[in-house]
Design a protein around this nucleic acid. Structure first.
Length: 911
RNA sequence: GGGCUCUUAGCUCAGUUGGUUAGAGCGCUACCUUGACAUGGUAGAGGUCAUAGGUUCGAGUCCUAUAGAGCCCACCA
């Protein structure tokens, strides 16, 4: 065999094995009745996106579950794909157009879309390429895109279905308008940010009088669109105003004073201006009172022709300044107060959103929310951590209709057509034509002149179908029957409403008529839901606790991290750092932990392989399990016990989505049990006097255990494990650890007695090492141990395993105390069941030894005291369980014995 | 305004249903290039578990309040 490099070099393996896996089509899944399916759909990244640390965490977690289940023998599908990201993508392409001093309107809709598709072809796959570097085992043969043909059909289908059920409607409402993107966005796409502004008290003159009333507003520029002022109906202070009118300043329009419950008498002056076209509250007040709606803005939030000449064309912030000045000039402002209010911002471009009156399409959400709320409350869909259930419940119970139309070009065109003659002919021609296939004529007047709705659908209107549209819905087909419902969804909690909730709603709504793999039509909640478990990942922050963001420049490029530390290192570190449901503070140098661990595993393998070639063991010998041999010694039995309890605990933690605990469990087992102790113990036997045949059997066993380790670790660190596994399995060059069976626990090997015995050996060795360190005995100095175990048992253990003590405690000789005379010039150690002496004639500093013993004595005295106090408490002995009390008694006993021995030793060296 | 989360070693964090002497990684100190690994080994220093009450034989863990940090939701202009 070739020599393994001294350190693990990730770059040498990652590319190689990823291609190998793809070549063998190991990522690919097909319906297989003989196996249980396991499926995860990827949260489709935006085609405009580049890989972030958030993606790394999210996709590593998915890959761990996917690889784990695949190795456990399930037919495992990880469905990948990308999202067309309406606004984001359109913005990117428009930006590149603007460099040529062009707008999308210069190109026209068709040409512009052609451009976007070209852009997508060129750059849209970037993030997918990056994901592969991470080692994600997605079924790339199935990669989907939210605007590919199949998914577009799904979007059309659900639109038509919901429309036919009366759940989709069109209307003129106040929506959140982004003046930069020139489109409506949904309520969820608005970020409220507290804004320190002013509250202006503006004077309105009561018609035909010299009386003024004062109206408080944060947005004086909207005065131009006022159609009334309102008071609370029970507000005694202002009741006399009812029925009167006021003259709108600057505009000199006469508007009524009305009463409405919505007014808060305690705010401002208790009188509020009503601007139905530019405030959601005012909109509904206007509806109740049949008020006109005066839209004063254009799509860019610049004042339009509805306002006096001098203000036209001003943008809203400019207008505010000028209007304030004009008001002040005519003494129209009573006072100005500081005021903090929450102002909505576009989640894409951060522009202040403008409440804007326009024709939009909406989905009625209440009917969809019911079933979706139920399946989370009854546990059909489980959230991890489950506290998100509360958040979900709150949102679902207060859900509002979803504005799904967007005034963009890039997206799914709304499948609605209008008869061009709608205004002149049959009044029914006004009805929109909603159809699955492009209609050729108006069903009412037969006109061939139809035009399609100009708008496209919200991007989320395609993502909410993702778990089944990627499997071929609406067409009934084997994939959909077999893989739906999927198993886990792994996503960031910030899209719980955008995406998670809506997917559950969509699944519950449309999957009822698709048969299951058993042929039955889906009826129960558990067959309808899109997934059973939702894992909400941590949010990755920088060391100062700030969210990673492009603008802060605190977002490391995962590809740089991969090339510096390796994909395995990054994967392991991020998973190890990110506890379920808690944010994580990350910096690149933390990946040293993962890198060091990969290197540790590498070198453990390197050690075993070097010895294998030295002992001339054929590579294929080691995999035949030779665990049943009679001649297992402490190290073997112990590591097997530890291995099997590790497997048990991995099953538990991964099963409970405690993935970082699983990572810790593996880390501790591999590093501290396997490397620190077991391998060191194996050395003793490999370099001892045993016959080669014995050594071969020892090493084969070690290799077998190492094989199990590689399998256990593979879901977390796929590359280094695959590389090492192939060194082990040279006979099977076309096989892969990624489809090797995941080890199952064998409880017969979990042996408490062995673990206890080993614990004694470890603590005894530790004591010797400790004494050596504290007494400053140089490593070069050879020491011996003199045992004094009057009662036998533990002394026998030391003798039985003396070869381990020789090596691990760096001792040259072990003998029994003879003649009852304890050596004076020696370090003394009190251990369970006896004492050890380390003769250090000529080297021991008796003062140092005294100090060491005294320190130990005082520590024990403290322990002794607390234990005594506990046991003296009668309610403790009476009420605590017997085992606990007994344990305390044993402790006390052992503390006392130790103290006594330590005192003797202290006297001895002091005399 | 409502809801949620967090506060444990210098730093970043574990700690399952309350029960041995509260752990890890990094950093720090000392020693070690001992035939896998200095991306390493051995030993060590370092904690009144935010604060105050309460429940309990027993609280880092459960309850209440307080302080601080953060997040989400909400149409008081």
């Amino acid at each position: 065999m070739t020599e393994l490099p001294k350190a693990y070099i990730p770059a040498d393996t990652e590319e190689k094995w990823y291609s190998f896996w793809e070549e063998l089509r190991l990522f690919h899944a097909e319906p297989n009745p003989a196996k249980t399916p396991y499926a995860i759909v990827i949260p489709p990244p935006n085609i405009t996106g580049i890989l972030t640390m958030g993606h790394v965490l999210n996709n590593t977690i998915q890959d761990v579950f996917v690889r784990w289940n695949r190795m456990k023998g399930r037919e495992t599908l990880w469905m990948p794909g990308t999202d067309h990201a309406g606004i984001a993508t359109q913005n990117v392409v428009e930006k590149s157009l603007s460099r040529q001093h062009k707008t999308r309107h210069d190109l026209g809709r068709e040409d512009f879309l052609k451009r976007v598709w070209e852009w997508k072809k060129e750059y849209g796959g970037t993030i997918i390429k990056q994901l592969r570097k991470l080692g994600t085992s997605c079924d790339w043969e199935r990669e989907r895109f939210t605007m590919d043909e199949g998914l577009s059909r799904a979007v059309q289908e659900i639109f038509v279905r919901l429309f036919e059920k009366g759940l989709i409607y069109r209307g003129k409402y106040i929506v959140n308008w982004c003046p930069k993107d020139h489109t409506a966005i949904s309520d969820d796409e608005v970020n409220s940010i507290d804004h320190e502004g002013q509250l202006y008290y503006v004077r309105y003159r009561v018609t035909n009088s010299q009386q003024y009333i004062s109206v408080a507003t944060t947005r004086p520029e909207t005065i131009l669109g006022d159609v009334a002022v309102a008071i609370h109906p029970d507000d005694e202070r202002h009741r006399h105003l009812l029925g009167k009118t006021v003259i709108l300043p600057l505009v000199e329009r006469e508007i009524p004073i009305i009463a409405d419950q919505f007014v808060d008498p305690a705010f401002g002056t208790g009188i509020v201006k009503i601007t139905p076209a530019h405030d959601p509250n005012d909109f509904w007040v206007g509806q109740r009172h049949n008020l006109p709606q005066i839209n004063i803005f254009d799509v860019s939030a610049k004042l339009n022709d509805a306002v006096p000449q001098k203000y036209r064309g001003l943008d809203r912030f400019e207008a505010r300044k000028i209007i304030l000045k004009d008001l002040q000039d005519q003494n129209g402002i009573e006072k100005i107060e500081k005021h903090v209010s929450a102002i909505g911002h576009c989640y894409r471009c951060d522009t202040m959103i403008e409440p804007y009156l326009s024709d939009q399409w909406f989905v009625k959400m209440k009917p969809l929310a019911g079933p979706a709320l139920r399946v989370v409350q009854n546990g059909t869909v489980r959230f991890h951590p489950d506290r998100w259930v509360k958040t979900y419940e709150h949102w679902m119970s207060n859900i509002r209709d979803w504005c799904i139309s967007r005034q963009l070009w890039w997206g799914h065109r709304i499948p609605v057509w209008y008869c061009v003659k709608s205004l002149t002919n049959n009044p029914r021609c006004k009805d929109p034509i909603v159809a699955r296939v492009v209609p050729t004529q108006c069903p009412h007047c037969g006109s061939m002149h139809l035009s399609q709705d100009e708008d496209v659908l919200d991007t989320w209107f395609s993502s909410w179908l993702w778990p089944f549209s990627t499997l071929g819905w609406p067409k009934d087909n084997p994939d959909l029957r077999y893989f739906y419902p999927t198993d886990a969804l792994v996503t960031a909690p910030d899209i719980i409403f955008f995406w998670v909730a809506r997917m559950i709603m969509a699944g519950m709504e449309v999957m009822g008529d698709i048969p299951t793999s058993k042929g039955l039509v889906r009826a129960s909640d558990s067959e309808l839901v899109p997934f059973r478990d939702v894992y909400f990942t941590s949010i990755i922050r920088d060391l100062k606790g700030r969210k990673m963001s492009k603008s802060l420049g605190n977002s490391p490029d995962p590809l740089d991290v991969i090339s510096e530390y390796g994909a395995d290192a990054l994967r392991f570190t991020i998973v190890y750092l990110a506890p379920l449901g808690q944010d994580v503070l990350y910096s690149n140098d933390k990946c040293e932990m993962g890198r060091n661990f990969a290197n540790k595993v590498w070198n453990a393998g390197r050690f075993l392989l070097m010895n294998r070639s030295q002992l001339g063991i054929e590579s294929h010998v080691n995999m035949s399990s030779n665990l049943d041999e009679q001649h297992l010694d402490l190290a073997d039995r112990w590591i097997l016990s530890r291995l099997n309890s590790t497997i048990v605990s991995l099953e538990e933690t991964l099963g409970a989505f405690d993935i970082n605990l699983a990572a810790k469990t593996l880390y501790d087992f591999i590093w501290h049990d396997f490397c620190d102790w077991y391998v060191e113990m194996v050395k003793g036997r490999l370099y001892g006097d045993d016959a080669d045949q014995v050594k071969r059997s020892v090493l084969s066993r070690a290799l077998t255990i190492f094989d199990r380790i590689l399998r256990l670790l593979h879901p977390f660190m796929p590359f280094v494990t695959e590389e090492l596994w192939h060194y082990l399995e040279t006979r099977k060059p076309r096989e892969s650890v990624m489809v090797a069976a995941y080890p199952t626990p064998d409880p017969r090997w979990i042996d408490e007695t062995v673990e206890k015995e080993m614990a004694f050996v470890q603590s005894t060795i530790n004591s010797v090492r400790n004494a050596r360190g504290e007494l400053m005995v140089p490593p070069s100095r050879e020491i011996e141990l003199i045992l004094h175990f009057p009662t036998g048992a533990n002394g026998d253990i030391v003798k039985k395993y003396q070869n381990y003590f020789l090596r691990l405690a760096r001792v040259t000789k072990i003998s029994n105390l003879t003649g009852g005379q304890k050596p004076k010039h020696a370090a003394s150690l009190v251990i369970q069941g006896g004492e050890l002496f380390i003769p250090l004639e000529g080297i021991i500093d008796l003062d140092a030894e005294r100090e060491r013993i005294e320190k130990e004595l005082s520590r024990l005295a403290n322990l002794c005291e607390t234990t005594e106090r506990k046991l003296a408490n009668q309610s403790f002995t009476a009420k605590a369980p017997k085992e606990i009390v007994d344990k305390e008694r044993e402790k006390l006993q052992s503390f006392r014995e130790t103290i006594e021995k330590l005192r003797h030793n202290l006297e001895r060296i002091s005399s």
